[in-house]
Design a binder for these strands. Sequence first.
DNA 1: AATCATCCCAACCGCCTGTGT
DNA 2: TACACAGGCGGTTGGGATGAT
Length: 345
Amino acid sequence: MGRAPCCDKANVKKGPWSPEEDAKLKSYIEQHGTGGNWIALPQKIGLKRCGKSCRLRWLNYLRPNIKHGGFSEEEDNIICSLYISIGSRWSIIAAQLPGRTDNDIKNYWNTRLKKKLLGKQRKEQQARRSSGLKQEMKRGNGNPVVPADNNNQNPYWPELPILAPTPYSNHEPHFNDHSSIRKLLIKLGGKFSDDDQVNHNAMNPQFPADLSYTQQLYDNQSINVSSSAPMEETLEDTDAQFAQTQYDIDGAAGLQMLQGQSSFPAGLEQMVSSNPPRLDGLEFLLGDDMVNNRIRTAYGTESMIDCGEMTSLIFPPGASSCEGIIQQRLLQECAFDEPRYPGSL
DNA sequence: AATCATCCCAACCGCCTGTGT
DNA sequence: TACACAGGCGGTTGGGATGAT
């Protein structure tokens, strides 16, 4: 038995909304509100629409103060940095951009921002490649350098760093006690309540939107990287507890450091404190291995990557900003879709 | 002018989560 | 505790708009 439909599909109109439908919905909600029940709403006002469709229409189009198009550079930066931090959680990203809807941002990312970053990077790569070839020709053999290994999965951008996690070293984790975590949070401008819960509200909201801050932070701190897989599978209870604390801190710090001038709304803070930042969907940024596998120490326990390793994973050589990372990841993601390098045939 | 390709965005779909019973 | 239901979300798609040939 399948799931019950949310409405009678046969008696429901689909497709673009007419101005009359818009007017009906808008005037009703402005006068009466949604009544807390979207499913019942279309019947009340005589619309042959699914409740979900009404909700979407209101949220994405009819709601007051909605902005469409014309994303600013600053908004681009915020989207990029939040995408790095939390992935494709468009509703959360949208909450940071007043007047923007999750749908708008999602579309903007998929259709423009991604390509914009990709285009920039390709130009740079092309410039570097052609200058490299010229130099090679000058040196005398007259033959351009062609990757010898046709199985190379990334023949186009040989300079791209491998972002998959390197085998973990025997470094001691930097944050092996709560005081270390406190130090990090204090450094970040955080405060603690008595029960060691991070008080996100008290954290300094003045971090610059400047993306380089992200790198600064990674350069200075250890970061715990793990997937969203259940902790209990691999950890002792105490370890799991501690790891959860790290999750909370990383999530809060990660988001906090990426925000602009205003504080995150309470809902976001709650999300951060109760959910670790998921890496799902960030494969193209962090590498499949990083997302799909736990990073473990030689002892088989989940561990942290120290600042040097993390920096090299998150900010590989040549990636000077989050934009750089995204560009590089996008390029790797697209490498298989591209026609093969002519010389490698 | 006609055709084809690509871009863009509104809307849909189905899954997940939270809440009430 | 289990279930049903509505809301919310992210991924995907359909089709109009625009540009290229």
